[in-house]
Design a binder for these strands. Structure first.
Lengths: 203, 203
DNA sequence: AAATTTACTGAACACTGTTTAGTAATGTCA
DNA sequence: TGACATTACTAAACAGTGTTCAGTAAATTT
């Protein structure tokens, strides 16, 4: 059955080609500014062809969101190797912010864009994101167990750290740091992260 | 010149009617989901009429952004009455978060939606926002002067506090707290704000 | 009363997401 | 090999979008 195998492979390639083109366009112009016709033109097929591979424009979005979640996981999970929980937590935070800065388009996709949460694709994405979030909360708990924190409220600690990191990245990604000169922004973010760590040590 | 006065008044009323209708629709359905035709229908005029009062759809957005900035200022600036800088700062933070929770549509308009920043309307909005931000940074500086903080890096402290508050609000506004049961979210946000204040005391 | 200015609109243009009917090529099987 | 079925794709259409413009009817000025 080599023929049907080739067909299936080609189908996957086509699907991926659509996703690649879509991601490039989304990153350049944003989700709403990209039309199905734009994507179709980029892959040199008719708009209707896209609908043979994706139910609608949303489903393309969901598939990309899943890809973004996978990239994020791969960016973060290497820290699982770090034994010391406090070091693991700080490196996790550093990498979380680094992911957002390096892939603003993906971060947008995952945490900022207003998106309906329905499809199967998206449920997988959700589960993936949840597992990373659980790893994060577990690391906070490990810090508590190792007496790095006096507080024992792991959930609130994790959420508070997350708020800071998300706030930092999304102010950056959505260009709400105009009051700070461009060349200072990176430095300010780094200083703020360091300040948060200092503060967190007193928890 | 009572006639021309009436005309000018009517012109302002029409402009405001368009803005009111647009804001209602934007809050219900989001910026992109609202069409000029929807707004026109709401005020019972033809779509073309809208263009006599606004250059394009973006300019309606800018005008609303300015209104949002004014609402935010009115929500926050009463704390200027509070003498003690630390109390002033904490109440400012509480109100900032409160504003975001109470007016998610306006918060979105101001800090999340990807928006080109060009028009005159928008420049006024920017100046308004800057003045509130300056008040915030001044309050942090006042806390430093009153020895509430050991650190003297007002800018980084202000930015760090802002990151947390913005992260907290925007995770809420953009519905990224699904891992926490709905009835716990408010409580978690309150706890996190309290935790940040506790941490900030050690700065 | 005539001329001008104002406020508004219908209809069009080029775009959007999506559906449908149809085509041309490929794969299957007698 | 020839007939049939499936696959992969598309042109064209539908209803929607932001926006423009020629035209109109009413209000105001002369």
């Amino acid at each position: 059955m080599s023929i049907s195998e080739r067909k299936e492979r080609e189908k996957k390639e086509m699907r991926q080609a659509i996703l690649d083109a879509a991601l490039n366009l989304f990153r350049e112009k944003g989700y709403d500014a990209v039309s199905i016709r734009n994507i179709a033109e980029a892959i040199e097929y008719s708009p209707a062809t896209i609908y043979l591979y994706f139910k609608d424009k949303n489903e393309i979005f969901f598939a990309l969101q899943y890809e973004a979640a996978a990239v994020k996981r791969d960016h973060l999970l290497p820290v699982a190797q770090i034994e010391d929980p406090w070091q693991r937590l700080t490196e996790f935070g550093r990498r979380y912010i680094d992911f957002g800065m390096k892939h603003p388009g993906l971060y947008d996709l995952l945490f900022i864009i207003r998106a309906p949460m329905e499809s199967v694709e998206n449920q997988e994405c959700w589960l993936l994101g949840m597992s990373v979030h659980k790893f994060f909360e577990d690391t906070v708990q490990a810090c508590i167990d190792a007496r790095y924190f006096k507080s024992t409220d792991a959930k609130t600690i994790a959420y508070t750290l997350w708020c800071h990191a998300h706030g930092l990245v999304s102010l950056f990604v959505r260009d709400r740091m105009r009051m700070y000169p461009p060349e200072e922004r990176g430095e300010l973010a780094r200083k703020s992260f360091a300040m948060l760590l200092k503060m967190a040590e007193t928890l």
